[in-house]
Nucleic acid binder design. Structure first.
Lengths: 91, 91
DNA sequence: TTAGTATTTAGTTAATTACTTAAATACTAA
DNA sequence: TTAGTATTTAAGTAATTAACTAAATACTAA
């Protein structure tokens, strides 16, 4: 989770996640959506992968990236410890 | 939300939020939980407030801080757009 | 008013982060 | 093998962030 919070702090990385919501994409296809060098996007992808937010899969000369929803689920659980605080559900 | 993601990237700020989960605290009480100067904690509180994650209320010479769950709820909604993707609920 | 406590603001510095270009690696296909 | 494409790694730099100390502000109480 620690790394996920840091990964989510950057707007470029959040936009990458949004792109992957629609469909899996190669590193190059992702880079095409940004006015930024491919190495920069590659670094962002590395951080997203380290944070567990995405996974990659090599297919020939391409590297496909896709979302890993596990960490998003953990994030939801974490946030709910704040919204549920003090709500004793008719206990 | 943009500012909330940045605010949550820092471990000190996440720990402050955890402390406030138990009960509302003054700036000084919060600072007592850290091996860090009061001005540094004050800056962290300022960022948390700008992000909408906490609110403050002055009582005499003290400033009490408390959680604002609204942004946590928005965070949950945001994360669910990732976990619910592709789940068409028996449609 | 004066002194004391609580908190924030200002100014500075060190560490981290996000970008760049150039080079390396990995695969494809002639 | 050689050339071409896709991606990552390396090295360097500019911008941002997180910390500090010192000073300012705001309140309390003698």
């Amino acid at each position: 989770m620690k790394e996920a919070f840091k990964a989510l702090a950057d707007p470029t990385r959040r936009k990458i996640l949004d792109l992957l919501k629609a469909k899996d994409l190669t590193a190059g296809q992702i880079a095409d959506h940004f006015d930024m060098s491919k190495p920069s996007i590659s670094q962002h992808l590395r951080l997203l992968k380290q944070a567990g937010l995405v996974e990659d899969e090599k297919q020939g000369q391409y590297v496909y990236y896709h979302l890993n929803i596990t960490v998003f689920q953990e994030l939801i659980s974490w946030a709910m410890t704040f919204t549920d605080k003090g709500d004793d559900h008719d206990a």
